[in-house]
Write a protein that binds this DNA or RNA. Structure first.
Lengths: 333, 333
DNA sequence: TTGAAAGCGCTAACAA
DNA sequence: TTGTTAGCGCTTTCAA
């Protein structure tokens, strides 16, 4: 890179030392204003750009965040990424996106990569099978803050977490169902190992338990499109079939709706539907539009980034933050 | 980073020089096998990881690709990203994803960022308003290959491009319609200013013109969900309504299906539907599943990456590559 | 207020 | 076959 402008060149042109140029550029108090002026002007003119690798090498701190997501072809994660992207840019950071495919080994490799590259911070959504958090902890020990989002370690007392107020979201949905005096609810939740699932399930159940004449509740666990279709088809074929389907995620919703359509059932007359959704996209795709509890990925991202910034800038204790959710009424319940 | 293992430490422990250790690790022919053994073993044991910043600083070459996309909350781009992610990983590279929001200024900042960080290569989908390609060229001059995808510079004689065979996709759809002896087709295309639209429209029309008893063809342009719904609702309300709807994109498809559902029309009995789609996701969401011509973002990504690798490894002339598409039969036509 | 010099971890030309 | 040395571009301590 013969054409690259370096501090050396600037200092030579100005007949000053490299260190003076360096300090002038950072407004070091020791440097005379006149010198600062000169240096800054020349740097501006020459479009000087400090070499990030050299900075990293001497300070071992970079302006890059790592982000580990299970997948990128998923509206929830992309809206989250979107937010992190936007906010990182504003804060002067860039993003390296690492996809885990929900594979704990790949995840481990990514964490190592982040450590090796001394990222300024890591956002992570753990895989369902992540049980060993040592690698994550080794980052924290190396002074690289980790902010877990959405799927977080079961014991979050010694880490930063940013989540949906999962209990709230599930309660809101449960209460909406109660209000409609339904008799039998088929509720599909994602994998039981996930803390999201556990929290949502617990809250959902609790609401039902607190009401004397709550509907009968059947619970299944899966987040696989084909499985979902199968379960729902089977349940809806029963004589004593559910009058309401609760879906914990968008994927579950799309599977459920596919099954309902194939069975040619009317919503909400023959079967009512309510979901928790990460965006308005899927609920609004159907006719009638689906009633849902929104948990916005974008908002989660904004929160995650602000949490990260505080971690990076100050020495704060671990934070546990939540994004609230709310009911959006469609005509499906 | 007191805990970081460096070449220095290894060489001290082994009582050899740093350069010997360095060369041993890269299987330099000059080094004795016994030394290589020792060094490699110790490195393995200590989990030595070379510092990428130091490498970059002394070799000015990184293992990071830059990727500029208009948006990330879009299934087409995410499936492209997905592929680039997967393939980069295999090839030992990581990805920095930069989002332009279709803003030429942001795009320019991103290009500069990539230059400054000496990325190993850049993938770019230009904004509709990009007219100045000097920055891109400055990368190429600095020996950073650029591979344009999907939306590429108008004059692609001096750059690498990876695109869909847009004409083919449209012809395939048109021919599928012809085969079914339809009488009246309502075709919705995206914005007429885009080269994709122009190519697809032209090819679509051409097929119809070459056939004596081709269906009547009505064409509209929009890629806005609400507009699409409106247009389709209006057209389908006519006495002389179309018996087939062609959608140029997934967004158009979702708008069309929403309109069809609201009108409670049966597919394909009352109105047939065919679309061009970037993934199987949307077509398979509906019942019956929609017949579509696939233009896979993932495949485009795989192709883009392989083009990039050849650019990085060999000194090849500019490439102009295409991904072909094919018909996937649903039951909607 | 400024400069000299060491060092971050690695590569590579040159010397031994 | 191995070691010495300079250098990549920057930060920072210490000395002037």
């Amino acid at each position: 890179m013969s054409d690259a402008i370096t501090l050396k060149k600037i200092s030579q042109l100005l007949n000053i030392s490299i260190s003076t140029a360096s300090r002038a550029l950072k407004d070091h108090p020791d440097i005379a204003d006149s010198t600062k002026q000169k240096v800054k002007e020349l740097a501006e003119m020459l479009e000087y750009e400090p070499n990030p690798y050299a900075i990293q090498l001497s300070t071992s701190s970079s302006r890059v965040f790592g982000l580990i997501v299970p997948e990128v072809s998923n509206l929830f994660y992309t809206s989250f990424i979107d937010a992190i992207e936007d906010e990182s840019r504003k804060a002067g950071y860039t993003l390296i996106i690492l996809k885990s495919d929900d594979d704990a080994e790949i995840e481990a490799a990514h964490i190592k990569y982040c450590k090796k590259h001394r990222v300024a911070g890591l956002f992570a959504c753990i895989t369902p099978s992540t049980s060993n958090f040592e690698l994550f902890q080794s980052l924290s020990k190396s002074n690289i803050p980790v902010v877990f989002f959405d799927r977080v370690p079961p014991d979050n007392s010694n880490c930063n977490t940013v989540c949906f107020a999962d209990e709230r979201a599930a309660s809101i949905a449960a209460e909406a169902i109660l209000k409609k005096n339904k008799k039998k609810v088929l509720a599909i939740f994602a994998e039981p190992s996930l803390s999201v699932t556990q929290k949502r399930l617990k809250a959902f159940r609790k609401v039902f338990q607190q009401h004397a004449n709550a509907p009968k509740l059947d619970i299944y666990h899966t987040n696989n499109y084909e499985n979902i279709k199968e379960i729902i088809k089977k349940q809806l074929a029963n004589a004593d079939r559910p009058d309401t389907i609760f879906c914990m995620t968008d994927v579950i919703l799309t599977g459920a709706m596919k099954a309902i359509h194939e069975l040619k059932l009317m919503v909400p007359e023959e079967v009512a539907v309510i979901t928790i959704s990460n965006s308005d996209f899927f609920p609004k795709l159907y006719t009638p539009e689906i009633t849902y509890v929104e948990t916005s990925g974008y908002k989660l991202g904004v929160l995650a980034l602000s949490a990260m910034i505080t971690c990076v800038e100050e020495d704060v204790p671990y934070q546990e933050l939540y994004v609230d959710s709310y009911l959006v009424e469609g005509q499906s319940l």
